[in-house]
Structures are given as C-alpha cells and as structure tokens.
Simulated scan of single mutants.
Amino acid sequence: MTPAVWALVASCVLWGTTGTAASFLPEAVSPLAVGASTMTLGGALLFAVSHRAALGVIRDRAVRGWLIAAALGMVAYPLSFYASMDLAGVAIGNVVSLGSGPLFAALLEWRVSGSRLTRRWMLSAGIALTGMTLLVVGGHGDDSPVDAASIPAGVALGLVAGAGYALFTFASGIVIRRGHSGRGTMGAAFGLAALPLALVLIVVGAPLLASASSVAIAVYLAVGPMFLAYLFFAVGVRALASSTVTVITLLEPLVATLLAVLIVGERLEPLGWIGLVLILAGVTVLSSARQPRSRA
C-alpha cells in the first residue's frame, strides 16, 4: 500500500474509537456537546499547527467558496454523527454515517464534476440502501443497550453526517488540488468550523466539566480521533479521489462495530449483521465500479 493509503488506515483506526470512548461519558453529557467539543478543541489544534498555511488558504478568494463548503460539512458532521450513535448505537451510527458517505460523494461528483453514474453504480447504491433498511428494521435485539424505537431517528442523523462528511471530503479535495497543502486546508476548514461549534459548546457543554474523567475523554476525542487522525487524513486526501477516500474509510465502521460489540456490549440481530454486510459490500462495489467521466 502507498503512504497515502497507510495514512488513511491510521486515521480510520483512531476514528473507530470515537463511539466507544464517548459511551463512557455520563448520560448528562449531550452528544451535541461531545461533537462540538471534539471539533472546537481539535479544530483549534489543527489551525494552530498550520496557521500560516491555513491563513493563506483563507485569503485565497479563488477557493474560498469550496473552503466554506468544507467547513460547513465539518459543522454538520460531528453534531449529527455523535447524535446518531447516541440514538442508534455505536455500530449502526458509524455504519450509516460512513457507509452513506460514498453515496453522497458520488452524487456530488456527478452534479459538480460531471461524473457519470452507471447502472452498476445504481445497483450498488440500491444494495447499500437495502442494508440500511435492514439495520433499521432488525438492528438490535432485546438484550442490547440501544432502544429500538430510537434507531430510525439515529439512522436519519447518520445520513446527515454522511452528507456532511462527503461535502467536506469533496470540497477540501478541490482546495488541495488547486495548490494548497493538505495541512493548510485541514487547518483552515477545521478552524472555520470550530467557530460556530464553539458557540454550541458554550450552550450545552457544561456537563463535560463536571468530572475529570469526562474532561479526559473529551481531550482524547479532540487530540486522537480529531487532531492526529485528520493530519493523517490530509496526507491521504491529497493523493486520492474523494470516492476512493470514502471507500477506505469504511475501515472505521468495521473497527467501531468490533469495539461496540466487544466493549460497549451492543448486540446486533442476524438481520442487522446482514444489513451491515450489505452496506459495506454495496458501497465497496459502488466506488470500484463507478468510472467517472468529465463532461469536459
């Protein structure tokens, strides 16, 4: 594997620990607070270590629209991602959020770059959507800590997270390919996203400060899965297409699912496992089969 692929693998392993780490927070801590704190602290760190390059990206009017789009994607992603895991469970929240990413990434490439969606692509998308439906219908059993009634809302928020992630990946990739460094682009996008999320943190973040363990978990989520993981991510996204990136990041829901079952105690029904496998298989075939062609 190339260094870019190894960098993405490292980021996926770090991302895969987010749900399990967040599950140890007290119930009083809102998932919005977790998402906002992770992005605010991690975004500030990313901006700090790359402030010169990040400011150069921000000042470049030619890419400012795409930079703002990437930042908006990163505002939506952490809030809906952690809320999805809170409602649907770590396994389902991760799989839907990341599994839907390639669908939205391909749609963006189709609408913006003129990539053609083939029949094989549509079949693959149908397989993935069928898997998501199975997860909603028969995801968790009675012995699982997840309330089955909250799964549909969690899946819907996971789709929002997937759209936000795809927007960030697509837009930041354009900024990087137009001559800016990966670190500068990450620092600029995350720094801008941290501003509105800091306001969310001020409103709902008080319970995070109630105990030292909560603060420690929040710091880990900001430094590990956010700061370090996205430095690795910047290496990968510079060299790979956005649809390829979203396929490789399917390692994250696999890691997250294993941790959810082994550590958190979640139990998926057979129908849920089938749905999970269909999502991963459908999305993998989706991106490997799609042959984008530019109108130009």
Score class of each variant (00 low, 15 high):
residue 6 W to E: 01
residue 10 A to N: 13
residue 12 C to L: 13
residue 13 V to H: 11
residue 14 L to T: 00
residue 17 T to S: 14
residue 25 L to R: 02
residue 28 A to D: 15
residue 29 V to R: 02
residue 29 V to D: 05
residue 29 V to E: 07
residue 30 S to A: 14
residue 31 P to H: 08
residue 37 S to Q: 11
residue 41 L to T: 07
residue 44 A to D: 07
residue 53 A to W: 05
residue 53 A to C: 12
residue 56 G to R: 05
residue 56 G to Y: 07
residue 57 V to C: 09
residue 58 I to T: 11
residue 63 V to Y: 04
residue 66 W to H: 11
residue 67 L to V: 01
residue 72 L to H: 01
residue 74 M to Y: 09
residue 74 M to T: 09
residue 75 V to H: 02
residue 75 V to C: 08
residue 75 V to L: 11
residue 75 V to Q: 02
residue 77 Y to S: 06
residue 78 P to T: 14
residue 81 F to D: 12
residue 81 F to H: 12
residue 87 L to Y: 10
residue 94 N to Y: 12
residue 95 V to R: 06
residue 98 L to Q: 05
residue 98 L to E: 03
residue 100 S to C: 10
residue 100 S to T: 11
residue 104 F to R: 06
residue 105 A to H: 08
residue 107 L to A: 13
residue 109 E to G: 10
residue 109 E to A: 13
residue 113 S to V: 10
residue 114 G to A: 11
residue 115 S to W: 08
residue 117 L to Y: 01
residue 117 L to I: 10
residue 122 M to C: 06
residue 123 L to V: 08
residue 123 L to M: 07
residue 123 L to A: 08
residue 127 I to A: 03
residue 129 L to K: 01
residue 129 L to Q: 06
residue 136 V to H: 00
residue 137 V to F: 07
residue 142 D to W: 09
residue 143 D to L: 13
residue 144 S to E: 01
residue 147 D to N: 13
residue 148 A to C: 07
residue 151 I to S: 04
residue 152 P to H: 15
residue 152 P to T: 14
residue 153 A to P: 00
residue 154 G to V: 12
residue 159 L to C: 14
residue 160 V to I: 15
residue 162 G to I: 09
residue 163 A to F: 15
residue 164 G to H: 01
residue 166 A to I: 06
residue 166 A to R: 04
residue 168 F to L: 13
residue 169 T to S: 08
residue 169 T to K: 03
residue 174 I to W: 08
residue 174 I to Q: 10
residue 175 V to N: 07
residue 178 R to N: 15
residue 179 G to N: 13
residue 179 G to M: 11
residue 180 H to R: 09
residue 181 S to D: 14
residue 184 G to D: 09
residue 186 M to T: 06
residue 190 F to I: 12
residue 190 F to D: 02
residue 196 P to G: 10
residue 202 I to V: 14
residue 202 I to G: 12
residue 203 V to A: 15
residue 205 G to Y: 04
residue 213 S to V: 13
residue 215 V to T: 11
residue 219 V to G: 04
residue 223 V to Y: 00
residue 227 F to V: 04
residue 228 L to K: 05
residue 228 L to W: 06
residue 236 G to R: 08
residue 237 V to K: 00
residue 243 S to A: 15
residue 244 T to P: 02
residue 249 T to C: 14
residue 256 A to Y: 00
residue 261 V to R: 04
residue 263 I to L: 11
residue 267 R to Y: 04
residue 268 L to N: 00
residue 270 P to N: 08
residue 272 G to W: 03
residue 276 L to Y: 02
residue 278 L to D: 02
residue 279 I to A: 00
residue 287 S to G: 09
residue 289 A to M: 12
residue 291 Q to E: 15
